[in-house]
Design a protein around this nucleic acid. Sequence first.
DNA 1: AGCAACATTCAGGTTTCTCACAGGTTCACG
DNA 2: CGTGAACCTGTGAGAAACCTGAATGTTGCT
Lengths: 231, 231
Amino acid sequence: MEPIKILVVDDEPNIRDLLASGLRFAGFSVLAVGNGNDAVVAAEKGNPDLILLDVMLPDMSGFSVTKKLRSMNILAPVLFLTARDEVEDKITGLTVGGDDYMTKPFSLDEIIARINAILRRTKQSAVEKSVIEVGEVRIDEDAHDVYVNDQQIELSPTEYKLLRYLMENANRVLSKSQILDHVWEYDFNGEMGIVESYVSYLRKKLDPLTSEPVLQTKRGHGYMFKSTKKK
Amino acid sequence: MEPIKILVVDDEPNIRDLLASGLRFAGFSVLAVGNGNDAVVAAEKGNPDLILLDVMLPDMSGFSVTKKLRSMNILAPVLFLTARDEVEDKITGLTVGGDDYMTKPFSLDEIIARINAILRRTKQSAVEKSVIEVGEVRIDEDAHDVYVNDQQIELSPTEYKLLRYLMENANRVLSKSQILDHVWEYDFNGEMGIVESYVSYLRKKLDPLTSEPVLQTKRGHGYMFKSTKKK
DNA sequence: AGCAACATTCAGGTTTCTCACAGGTTCACG
DNA sequence: CGTGAACCTGTGAGAAACCTGAATGTTGCT
């Protein structure tokens, strides 16, 4: 099967490399460039399935890049990246069709989740399922809904991301630093105690509805989502 | 079959040698260097399957090394080593994909276990199974779960590491100093009586569930895990 | 501005783990 | 058998890891 091709466009080398390697690890074929002109050239040649595009580029705006691409009949969906305080009005107008946007700083897992979501919408062929189900817990990634034994529960964004990461790696111990790196934004600078807090929040919401606790503490190692039998 | 290649990067010669010889003995092909520049060169030439990388290096930080490698499209997963009290800011955000990190001081067996865990996750082909089973006892290395005749038991981290080491060398006598070297952190400074204590702890948890004792004392030599028939 | 939801830090309390010690037991050997 | 060395294991102090409620910031919304 062909790997899915992604074109990464960002002028900050740190971010570009972070994205490139993270996406490669996730199984995508990645081409990364640092400005709008290169992006147009690369998109024409490479025929990517999706473009990850920083809005602020040295030579031209992400908006111009997209317009140019579309005029060249390159219709790959675009996931825009933008600083949190950049004017959002401009962006909302941009996201037509399958496009979407995210603010920096982001968490890697969140980027990957969005990419998969877009690909699901555009390519029906896309393999990824939108539902993660482990034991008594089910996540609908498209709707961001979480069900425990068919009963829906409400989670905050961070709680949701944490649960998703733990469930993607069910029955495998994850260290607190791994969790921090995958779930929190890349510039998060705090202590690992926050992982403990959020595990605590999740337990408070999950445990009343499961037959046995699903989030296990592996003392000295980290945490693990344990798949349990359904009720 | 090709041996798995590991690049060890640490500036302290003691640690470097400890790692290199320990990993060679475990069957890996090892290349060891002492600074970031050599690491980049060696990684480019040697194409290692995994990089064991100290975060604090004389010439450049592990972060820079990784960045450089990733930008050169060298995607080998990295297991970071860091002093326990190093500022955590520096290490968060490092792990992408299958990466992980460990604090110094470590135990040799723990390093090997983590390396195998990463290789399992990144290379599907990786030979190693995540389950060690000898007689009536089974360890799931990914989950850190231990079962005796299908009944799960709880072990402390040290108990777990000791049991794993004994089972990896089942039916072979291990001296108390061998056990200390493999299971305890390399700077452990206590007496060998601690091994006796932990063997005792393990027996108390294992023996009630096995048909006959699995941990045998070889007076004057050490201890041995004896594989028994299942119940 | 004011509110509500969420994110983060902090600190006290609790559990669990590590390790040393010491008295008791077993074993090998004379 | 008697003796010393090796081994076993209960006890407890101290440390580390963890949990959680509460206080404090942040953010976005109306």
